[in-house]
């Protein structure tokens, strides 16, 4: 009988131990390291209490990075989650039944391409001299808008965001397509009987029915957005003049270029904090992540 009592704990033990060693322990280490000022080469760690945290507020680059992250987050949610849902609904509509499989592949393809390849592709598109974007603008008579997209502080970060949306939307759309396919058709039939149009059906049946998957897509999009690194790194490395810096690229710079490990840990904790807060709000709004 005793065995029966401890058996469930033994089953979960391996994953708990792995999670503890590789996730929770490093997180705690990181929190601890953010109270010190140290470099990988110095033998001593100087205790600075909360100085690393107060320094964040005077650091103009950090504030730019934070602002950029938030802009990225809002746009990603709007384009990928809302846009992805609309796109999925359109693709699942009877009108598009014929071409839907082709379009699904078209939208999903960017997800499968490595970010370095996409970065290279987009640096050609944004190239001021031979870039497709400027050529296109010239073709439709909008030459005055042509510019060095990645070299201009005003357009560098929006250009990076645009690339991220192009790559990310396919994945979210795919998740929604699966969810929409699971909705029982009789719901739509009943709505049709009552005289509901396409938009009403979308708002009153599709949206509530995919609520659970929305929880997943929002979490996924938020965490992807907060952790954005490669998009920025391959296109601008945070430039020009730090205008496209995000938290993770700034963290990288602080840790591996400036050797300020303590401060880098602090930035990492901020990223963690934001993610946790967003998750909690979301879990509250959606009550919980349970199916049904």
């Amino acid at each position: 009988m005793k065995i029966r009592n401890i058996a469930p704990y033994l089953y979960v033990a391996p994953s708990l131990i792995i999670a503890f060693i590789f996730i929770y322990y490093p997180v705690m280490e990181n929190v601890q390291s953010s109270f010190f000022s140290w470099s990988p080469f110095s033998d001593t760690k100087e205790f600075v209490a909360l100085q690393n945290y107060t320094r964040l507020f005077d650091d103009s680059v950090f504030l730019v990075a934070l602002k950029n992250n938030l802009i990225h987050l809002v746009i990603s949610l709007a384009v990928q989650v809302v846009g992805g849902l609309v796109l999925a609904a359109i693709l699942e509509d009877v009108v598009f039944r014929r071409v839907a499989p082709v379009l699904r592949t078209v939208y999903f393809l960017p997800v499968l391409i490595s970010i370095s390849v996409i970065g290279l592709l987009f640096s050609f598109i944004y190239n001021p001299d031979i870039g497709l974007l400027n050529k296109f603008l010239a073709m439709v008579g909008l030459e005055e808008y042509a510019r060095g997209w990645l070299g201009d502080s005003d357009t560098a970060f929006p250009a990076i965001i645009a690339m991220g949306q192009w790559q990310g939307i396919g994945y979210i759309t795919m998740l929604y397509i699966v969810a929409i396919q699971k909705i029982p058709p009789d719901l739509y039939e009943a709505a049709e009987m009552d005289g509901a149009g396409k938009i009403r059906k979308f708002l009153h049946i599709t949206v509530p029915q995919v609520k659970e998957i929305s929880f997943v897509t929002i979490i996924y999009t938020v965490s992807q957005s907060i952790l954005t690194f490669s998009d920025v790194y391959v296109l601008t490395k945070g430039g020009p003049g730090n205008s496209s810096q995000v938290l993770s690229t700034y963290l990288y710079q602080k840790a591996f270029v400036d050797s300020e490990m303590g401060y880098a840990s602090t930035i990492a904790n901020v990223i963690l904090g934001i993610t946790v807060v967003v998750y909690l709000i979301q879990a509250k709004v959606f009550k919980n992540g349970q199916e049904g």
Binding site: V61, G151, D152, S153, G239, P240, G241, N242, Q253, V257, D258, S259, E260
Partner: peptide, 21 residues
């Protein structure tokens, strides 16, 4: 130079070229 000095220096030069600083 130390990264903490050359990073703002280099970022500043980019902004100089853009006419922002």
């Amino acid at each position: 130079l130390d990264g903490r000095i050359f990073n703002p220096y280099l970022a500043g030069i980019q902004q100089l070229l853009n006419g922002e600083k």
